[in-house]
Design a protein around this nucleic acid. Structure first.
Lengths: 325, 325
DNA sequence: TCTATCCATGTATAAAAATTCACTACCAAA
DNA sequence: TTTGGTAGTGAATTTTTATACATGGATAGA
């Protein structure tokens, strides 16, 4: 019985605090108890479930999927975007928008942004970033060489340059192909002063933005002019590779897949990536599901931006089912 | 679209704060924004109804009726107790329990309690108060004389004394009848040193506990041996009286009803009562509904403790219907 | 293109809330 | 009855949160 009277009082305190927006001190003097007691009663009210606080995600947001991704993969943050259809074009646009918003909102002054250029999704992101008048970022560093095809090469440069402009940063381009013809060719290219200067900035990057690729040739990869022979991609698959970030391949458990290809890629390595303060990955789509799974497993990603369909697939355990879909 | 991303972020912040119990500062550094912004987002979340806080009244409490009483009568607080049946005996017991709990929980150190002795409900309250080891209250002052019948007189003294003992206070008894035989007799009684000393404490009372009586003779009033002639009570009713507190009568609007009886009562006046910091009224029951209505209207009561049936009758506007029930 | 005004933000600070501390009462077991 | 542990309290303090203020950019109208 006394418990009921106690709960009545707690309920009243909760009412005054949460509904009537009174301060604890006022409630305390009104009820002739101490502020400390009011504070304790409010905690009690929470425990006793006299007050219930619910956070409802605004329609179009997927807090549950985000939590699922965070929990399953141990990543710091996940953003799951609304998307009307499970189609790559629509997905990339939405992911790009959300990523742009997030980067804008959280960019630190003096930040050094590393950006992988071989990603359509990142392109979409850059398209959605609003120009920041007062220079916020310090440098934007291209973390992967351009593509063989000169047209696409320009494209890649533009992405980096544009992002630099938008963020008020100085662009540091990687004036080299993403994939050299041979190991020896790579060494020659690395001899270039500008290339070396840019690559020396890799370890100073504070925010890396990467795309995640599936082994299946994407349209951009295709356009780049067969930098990897089909045979070579097959070898990567053979070795268990499921996807890449900046042309660095990994398997379903997130372990790097070492192949001779590695010696030809001019860009940031997975090891370098993992040393970066914030790594934001942008990817979504049916075909990339397994690749994203592996990428998340690798532990180098801090934040994933993806779509609700892909997030759903990732969270539901049966990733392997999608293997050959 | 940007609004949606903003809301998503707000939802996430709300999630981290309310569900995951993280501090604003931590959320801020996690998301690379300032603590101030987190605070604003949380306010925003409240406005946008992304977080919803509901206070659910524990079963057996009547927050709505209490709010109704507060609003309708402008009293500071109301306590409405659960009660299985609308019968005076059960009601008094419950009200007494609740009042005891409240007084225990809110009694200030050094408080001077004034207690009207002619109330069975107050008696029930005193029965339910737990002894407080370290003296909390300073004095317990009897605010109405005893009753003519010596047996009941003792009863009244006991109530005051017992309450004093329980609260660790010093009892100040009013060793005089509640109603003197005549105006002259009252003057004589007031000449008594002890009586005068107690009455001089009236204005120092910080917490008054009163019952509310209907004009209809209560069992205790009856037992007291017809202190008021039936004729006199009729006169009070004639003048619009609907009830009394400590034998001071008032009408349905809470205005004092002045009759020659006033000059014979030895106890605290309504004027003195209204000057007291906290006035707690204990009353419930079908027959007292109109009396309580009038008492609340008088504006001297700060807290009413009553039962759910009576509260329901009081809150539903049609008090006049109960006039002759 | 140039104001004037409006927002949004972060910093610094004020305000509010939670917690530590010291103490009291209470209870159960010795 | 004593003792040792638990629970609950308010005052003081610390921690956390909200706000006042100043700044810088965005926006709209001249």
């Amino acid at each position: 019985m006394s418990r009921l009277n106690e709960l009545r009082m707690i309920a009243r305190v909760a009412q005054m605090y949460h509904v009537e927006n009174q301060r604890q001190a006022d409630i305390a003097s009104h009820l002739r108890i101490s502020q400390a007691t009011v504070s304790r009663m409010l905690k009690r009210a929470l425990d006793e479930e006299i007050v219930r606080t619910t956070v409802v995600a605004p329609s179009g947001t997927y807090a549950d999927l985000e939590a699922g991704l965070r929990d399953k993969y141990g990543i710091a943050e996940a953003i799951v975007v609304e998307c009307s259809e499970d189609r790559d074009g629509a997905i990339m646009a939405r992911i790009g928008e959300a990523a742009a918003h997030f980067v804008e909102a959280t960019l630190q002054p003096g930040e050094i942004i590393g950006v992988s250029s071989w990603s359509e999704t990142i392109l979409k992101m850059v398209e959605n970033i609003h120009p920041m008048k007062s220079g916020k970022a310090k440098y934007v560093v291209q973390t992967l060489g351009g593509m063989g095809d000169p047209t696409v090469q320009i494209h890649a440069n533009q992405l980096t340059t544009r992002l630099a402009k938008l963020t008020g940063a100085e662009a540091h381009l990687l004036s080299a192909p993403g994939v050299a013809q041979s190991r020896e060719a790579k060494l020659v290219l690395l001899g270039d002063t500008y290339v070396r200067e840019t690559m020396e900035l890799f370890e100073k990057v504070t925010l890396a933005i990467v795309g995640i690729g599936a082994i299946e040739p994407s349209s951009m990869l295709a356009r780049s002019g067969n930098v990897f022979a089909t045979r070579e991609l097959a070898a990567v698959k053979e070795a268990g590779g499921v996807g890449d970030m900046s042309l660095r391949f990994f398997d379903a458990d997130g372990n790097p897949v070492k192949t001779p290809l590695d010696d030809r890629v001019i860009g940031m390595s997975l090891g370098e990536l993992s040393g970066i303060d914030r790594v934001i990955a942008l990817a979504g789509g049916q075909s990339k599901t397994r690749a994203i799974h592996g990428a998340l497993k690798s532990g180098v990603i801090d934040l994933l931006v993806t779509d609700k369909f892909t997030a759903g697939r990732l969270v539901s355990d049966n990733i392997e089912q999608h293997e050959e879909e």
